[in-house]
Design a protein around this nucleic acid. Structure first.
Lengths: 231, 231
DNA sequence: TTTTAAGTATGCTATAAATCATCTATTTTT
DNA sequence: AAAAATAGATGATTTATAGCATACTTAAAA
């Protein structure tokens, strides 16, 4: 991890309006001055389960996984997050240490705002509070929706769902470099590494996807949608 | 459903301090005056997926299920909620219709506060906003924790987890009347009705639980904890 | 009260998925 | 650059779970 000194201003941040659009100049300066930026390389752990929560973090660049390790040492990925996702927003007000770990899946730029600054702003700026509530509701809706989708699907359907998720909600195109190992994909959709690999092989054989290493291309989108629906 | 006219005052509500403890007399009156109370019988649907969200609802008495129906007509229960749980709190600010249905599992008394009143209070009372944020974070932590537990368990572990959940977090004792059918339990932990019944039979045979109809008694708590841990 | 429907219970069978084993390819580390 | 570790691939086997069938019981509806 490398702390950046030449940090960018919130004023020029593309994500500013996602969160801080309702701040006046004074409030905005408060955020900007209490802020640090950190750069993480692929594989680096940003937060560890059990760490104290004393800041609100969000991504300006990169991709991360939120995960937990079970009693057998097996990891379970809760979600994959990219800029604009406001990782940890849901959890930071619970007065509890982090209940999951966060690691970078590619070079990731993290913006860190002290929690007491955010808390002060919430208590004094009702518009910001409502904005945050709305964001939290949307995130939780996604979690619930995802849980529901998972519950009704088995291996083939889950892999299809995963591919469609990355195509539609992360990369917004049908060809993308996905910096996840097959094991990590399995950890995300709760199936074994072998079955993840096997299903990819099958989809390749059936001409549903093309794949060169970690670059995936969806060839037959409709078929994938059908598999996703069917289970 | 029956609208109650002899509604109780928020002032005497045991759940008041869970949410509205930071209100002054004027604010408190706002809430109290915009409030309606409704009584639902077992089986009645309180909200339907797709319904417009225009109020914050919470339970004063009873037990409900939050659920969604999939494309095959199969229900999936997202959570079971009791008074104090603030059902729907997470979702109400998303500006979207309900993404799940809510139904009463036993006679349930629902308190309904207009959303615009709550929204106005949030924007003007920072303490209330922070209080709500904290509550939302706690709820989402529970959802995440539950998802994590589910993912690593199979049938026997899931049933054990379910029993421990009701014993520890809902009824706070080892003997309780659980107004859920075996099918509903299966819908909650994503296993078939047959496997739910089979596992109950097995636990009965092994002396882990005793069971008369819907009354369940945990006889060997430690064994259940061990099964829960083991998977 | 009788009829119908829904819930509980169990055995059997089919199927899906995990586990185990082995091999090759690709990264990472030294 | 060589060695070691990790990732990807695939077949064979075992295990877990779903699905189907059927009987009995309890609750709801006519």
């Amino acid at each position: 991890m490398k702390i950046k000194n030449d940090i960018l201003s919130c004023r020029t941040c593309v994500y500013r309006q996602l969160l801080f659009k309702d701040l006046n100049d004074f409030e905005y300066k408060l955020v900007n001055d209490s802020r640090t930026e950190m750069l993480y390389k692929r594989g680096e752990v940003i937060k560890n389960e059990g760490d104290q929560v004393n800041s609100f973090i969000y991504l300006r660049k990169g991709l991360v996984k939120l995960y937990k390790t079970d009693s057998n040492g097996k990891d379970h990925i809760l979600s994959i997050n990219r800029p604009g996702d406001f990782i940890s927003l849901l959890s930071i007000f619970a007065d509890e240490p982090y209940r999951f770990s966060i690691a970078a899946l590619e070079e990731t730029l993290v913006c860190d705002v002290k929690l007491d600054v955010l808390q002060h702003l919430i208590e004094t700026n009702g518009k910001l509070a409502m904005h945050l509530f709305k964001k939290m509701s949307q995130i939780s809706d996604e979690i619930i929706e995802n849980q529901f989708e998972q519950a009704q699907k088995q291996v083939k359907g889950r892999v299809a769902h995963l591919l469609l998720y990355f195509a539609n909600h992360v990369y917004h195109k049908n060809e993308f470099y996905l910096p996840l190992t097959r094991r990590e994909m399995g950890e995300l959709i709760s199936i074994t590494t072998e079955n993840t690999i096997r299903t990819f092989s099958e989809y390749r054989k059936d001409g549903i996807i093309d794949q060169q290493g970690k670059t995936i291309k969806i060839l037959d989108y409709d078929r994938l949608v059908a598999i996703n629906k069917g289970g």
